[in-house]
Design a protein around this nucleic acid. Structure first.
Length: 414
RNA sequence: GGAGAGGUGGCGGAGUGGCUGAACGCACUCGCCUGCUAAGCGAGUAUGGGGUUUAUAGCUCCAUCGAGGGUUCGAAUCCCUCCCUCUCCGCCA
């Protein structure tokens, strides 16, 4: 959500930035500005009436206290109230429309966000080709049972793959703990407000599972619950940045993805993820974004997975991000880089929607900034590890760093 | 799932229709005072929005007592719905 007060003073930068998204959002902002103007036409008149009402009210109260006859004052009050009623109804309507339109305006992209997906760096030496994760560990992934029990794009992970996943999680929590992140297991069922606040609604409803009998949604990322952890709060600037590492399952309907990535667990309806989330001051945002990216790269290097970093195109940012980096891992079986993690600077977009502010020494509150990034998406990380550490004999030698966290040294069908 | 109680400012806690943006206490800030400390005295201390303004300063108006509706000339106070917290019973990982 944009700050109308700021935009109103100088609309052009926001309109120009939104135009880069090529989704017509600058038109919605323009509509919002018109509604805002209308609102500020009506509001002073409405408030004027309220003030008269308050004054008349005081007169009635005074008369009653003095034991005098208040019927004249009451009659006047009735008149004023009736006059204000229509105006207030109109105001409420304008404000409701304004809120709806503003809720649909995405975050204006940062100037440094790319026009097209742009590779900005590369690391590691990719294998030219190789077996896919099903060929390598299919005996530990039961897609048939998954489909039978829950439908397509569900799987059972078994045996050493589970040990591998849990080792990665423990490794991540250790690593992130050292970087000031507090481990969190958040709710994965949330109210609409949490999804609205993070900008997933109204925007990506077709991706979100909703419960039939309760007003709850299954979250596609713990970002939703982590952002809402401080819903409505004013944070002490001295405590910032607040960094959380959420570990949770993630649920995505993958509507519209039919026919894409149908092999194995690359694209499934349910997976686990460790997610970084940061609350910080406006000044700290840029630095935190680079820091999160640095951590994500460091994880790839720890796990010895060749990757590239991509500055994501403005028209692919999602509503909340002003800028986003993806880290794409090399998958030898596909002979291409595929998204493994991403990190977004959502600036004040989510914080304003959620009413999260920061207050410094003696200052008045300002809207906070938030950022998020994938520490590790377990399914895809497992795929990348399997494919990039495969041996000519079909076995997989797992990264040494994971072994002290309980991962086996080797996976495969002997 | 059943039965109750309750949600007021940073905290505690008054307030059952007008004099309450909100008593009183605590905490905090500034000043005074006491050769330190403590105590004491005085003043102040919410958030959002509109207008005015070069101004996020000041002034002024409006709104806010969990949220949203309603009754009323007037609601923290009465009614309805929702959310949340707590207690007891049941169930349960």
């Amino acid at each position: 959500m944009l700050d109308l007060k700021t935009v109103r003073k100088d609309p052009d930068p926001a309109l120009a930035a939104l135009a880069r998204r090529k989704d017509g959002s600058q038109d919605r902002l323009a509509e919002a500005l018109q509604l805002d103007e209308r609102r500020r036409e009506i509001l002073p008149r409405s408030e004027q009436i309220s003030a008269e009402q308050n004054a008349a009210n005081d007169a009635i109260a005074q008369a009653k206290r003095d034991g005098a006859d208040a019927s004249d004052a009451i009659a006047k009050m009735k008149e004023i109230a009736a006059e204000g009623k229509a105006l207030k109804a109109e105001l409420a309507e304008v404000e409701e429309r304004l809120a709806t339109v503003m809720g649909q305006v995405p975050n204006p992209p940062d100037p440094s966000a790319a026009d097209e997906d742009t590779e900005i760096s590369r690391w590691g030496e990719p294998l030219p080709e190789g077996r896919d994760h099903i060929e390598l560990a299919g005996h530990l992934i039961d897609m048939e049972a998954g489909a039978r029990v829950a439908g397509s794009r569900f799987a059972y992970l078994k045996g050493d793959l589970v040990r591998l996943e849990l080792a990665i999680v423990q490794f991540m929590m250790d690593k992130l703990g050292g970087q000031g992140f507090t481990p969190v297991i958040p709710p994965v069922l949330v109210r609409e407000r949490a999804l609205y606040g993070t900008g997933f609604l109204p925007d990506t409803e077709q991706q979100i599972y909703r419960l039939a009998d309760d007003d709850l949604y299954l979250t596609g990322t713990s970002e939703v619950a982590l952002a809402s952890l401080h819903d409505g709060e004013i944070l002490d600037e001295a405590d910032l940045p607040l960094r959380y590492a959420g570990f949770s399952p993630c649920f995505r309907r993958e509507a519209g993805a039919a026919g894409r990535d149908t092999v194995g667990i690359f694209r499934v309806h349910q997976f686990e993820k460790v997610e970084m989330f940061v609350f910080c001051s406006p000044e700290q945002g840029l630095e935190e974004h680079e820091r999160i990216l640095g951590i994500e790269e460091s994880v790839m290097q720890d796990l010895q997975i060749p990757y590239r970093v991509v500055n994501i195109a403005v028209d692919d940012l999602g509503s909340s991000a002003a800028k986003k980096y993806d880290i794409e891992a090399w998958l030898p079986s596909q002979k291409q880089y595929r998204e493994l993690t991403s990190c977004s600077n959502t600036t004040d977009f989510q914080a304003r929607r959620l009413g999260i502010r920061v207050r410094g020494e003696g200052g008045s509150p300002r809207t906070a900034h938030t950022l998020n990034g994938t520490a590790t998406a377990l399914g895809r990380t497992i795929i990348a590890i399997l494919e990039n550490h495969q041996q000519p004999n079909g076995m997989v030698r797992l990264p040494e760093v994971l072994q002290k966290y309980g991962a086996p040294a080797e996976i495969g069908e002997k």
